[in-house]
Each structure stands twice: as structure tokens, then as C-alpha cells.
């Protein structure tokens, strides 16, 4: 337990010491998206009845930022430790796979939540009201960050070089987070893209998160919870199994 707490604290210190890059920068990026898209599209689209496009966009951007940053936190920390070699200081002590995994996971979730809160804060004057169902908001914020934080752990264990991690990020995480209904309701999409969105777990995170704010969304929040929850369980089982085996960490 103490081992877990210490590693968790170390991971928090790591991103907090450079919070300008790890928190402030993604918040600024989200604000820029909000400014541009809300300006261009607000007069043309009303996403749901009684919900302006500007307001509709905010939860999507917040969740996208949470997802990307949760992934970045665990994956970049692991790959840096592996490449510099200081991961040996985590492999010599008697840390269990469970302690190791949850320390990286929770730090990723904290960063995700910090970024998400920052995004909601700076975009608040675009007309997003208080959430209709705060509990759904919290659940999807936590689970969304957790799924991507777990993917980050897996990617960080698997990647041996920075460019492998960059490939993972650019060819998997970016498409998943962008093609997830951040900028539009998937009902507005043509058939193929709508079907494609339905196999993307990030879509369910965003949709459930939006439901919490507006009380309406593309699909039921329970279905979203089922998909996101199942993704989390499967991915964490994989991550734990890799850690337990010592895959690419213990030769």
C-alpha cells in the first residue's frame, strides 16, 4: 500500500512540476477549438432541441482533452523511465503489479480531471449551464480518463522508442478521440461514419458525459456506461497481465 501511495505521489509530482505543459497547454488548445468552431458553426447548427452548438461542443472538447491527457500521462512517464533506464528503481523494490498499475492509472486520471476542469472553467462563458445529472458527469469523467490512462500504461509498456509511442498516439488515440462526436451529433453523419462511431469507445464516453450535462444525448447513458465500463475492465486486465508477466520490463 505504501509503495502504491509513493509511486502515485511521484507520478503526480512529475506532471505537476511541469503543469504549464501538462495542464495549461491542453486547456488553451481546447479553448482555441471552442472559439473557432463555436464562431463558425453556432449560427447553423442546433445540436439538440434547446441546446446551442456552443454549449453542445464544450463537454465533447472537455472529454476529448481528458482522454488525450490521461493517455499522455501514463504513456509518456513509462516510456521516459524505460528509455532513461530509471525504471529499474521501480523494478527493484517489492511493488506488486496491482500497485504499479493503479499508481500510474490514478495519476493519469488526476491529470485528466485537472485538464477537464480547466477546459470547463475557461469555456464556461460560452453558455454551458450546470449539469442536469452531475453524477453521470463524474462517472464518465472518471471512467473516460481511466480507460485512456490504462491504454497509456499498455502503450508505455509496449513501446520501446518514442516514435513507436508517437505512432500509437497519432494513428490510434487521435483518430479515436477526434472521430467520436466531439464536434457533431453522430445523427448528423452519413450511415457508414455513424456505424464506425458506434465501435469507438470514446464516442460512448463523450455521449454519456453530454447526457450528464443536457439530460439528452444520442444514446442511453446506461448503454454508454456498459461499453465504457467493459472497455475499462478488459484493458486493465490486459495491463495487469502484462505487468504481472513483466512483459518488456523484466527480460
Amino acid at each position: 500500500m505504501q509503495g502504491f501511495l509513493t509511486l502515485f505521489r511521484k507520478e503526480l509530482v512529475r506532471f505537476w512540476k511541469v503543469s504549464f505543459q501538462t495542464v495549461a497547454a491542453p486547456v488553451l488548445t481546447a479553448l482555441l477549438y471552442q472559439l473557432i468552431f463555436a464562431h463558425v458553426l453556432s449560427k447553423h447548427v442546433e445540436a439538440y432541441p434547446g441546446v446551442s452548438y456552443s454549449a453542445f461542443l464544450i463537454p465533447g472538447l472537455a472529454m476529448m482533452s481528458m482522454a488525450q491527457n490521461a493517455f499522455a500521462n501514463s504513456s509518456s512517464s513509462l516510456i521516459q523511465s524505460k528509455i532513461t533506464g530509471n525504471i529499474v528503481f521501480l523494478l527493484l523494490p517489492p511493488l506488486t503489479a496491482l500497485e504499479f498499475f493503479f499508481a500510474y492509472l490514478l495519476a493519469a486520471v488526476v491529470r485528466g480531471l485537472a485538464v477537464g476542469a480547466g477546459v470547463l472553467l475557461v469555456t464556461s462563458w460560452f453558455g454551458l449551464g450546470l449539469p442536469t445529472h452531475p453524477l453521470w458527469v463524474l462517472i464518465f469523467a472518471l471512467l473516460g480518463s481511466a480507460v485512456l490512462g490504462t491504454l497509456g500504461v499498455i502503450a508505455g509498456i509496449w513501446a520501446e522508442k518514442f516514435d513507436q509511442l508517437a505512432a500509437f498516439q497519432n494513428f490510434l488515440i487521435m483518430p479515436l478521440t477526434f472521430l467520436s462526436g466531439v464536434f457533431y451529433s453522430i445523427h448528423s453523419l452519413p450511415g457508414f461514419w455513424r456505424a464506425a462511431s458506434h465501435v469507438n469507445p470514446v464516442f460512448y464516453m463523450i455521449d454519456g458525459f453530454r447526457y450528464g450535462f443536457f439530460g439528452q444525448a444520442d444514446i442511453s447513458p446506461w448503454l454508454s456506461l456498459g461499453v465504457v465500463g467493459t472497455s475499462f475492465i478488459l484493458l486493465s486486465a490486459l495491463a495487469l497481465w502484462l505487468l504481472h508477466r513483466g512483459y518488456k520490463l523484466r527480460h
Binding site: 500500500m1 505504501q2 509503495g3 509513493t6 509511486l7 511521484k10 523494490p93 517489492p94
Partner: peptide, 13 residues
């Protein structure tokens, strides 16, 4: 910090 964290990994506060 390095030494404190290392102690913590071994369960020592």
C-alpha cells in the same frame, strides 16, 4: 526526493 521516493517504494515512510 529521489531517496524519499525510493524509501516509499520499499514501504518506508
Amino acid at each position: 526526493e529521489t531517496l524519499r521516493f525510493q524509501s516509499g517504494y520499499f514501504g518506508l515512510t
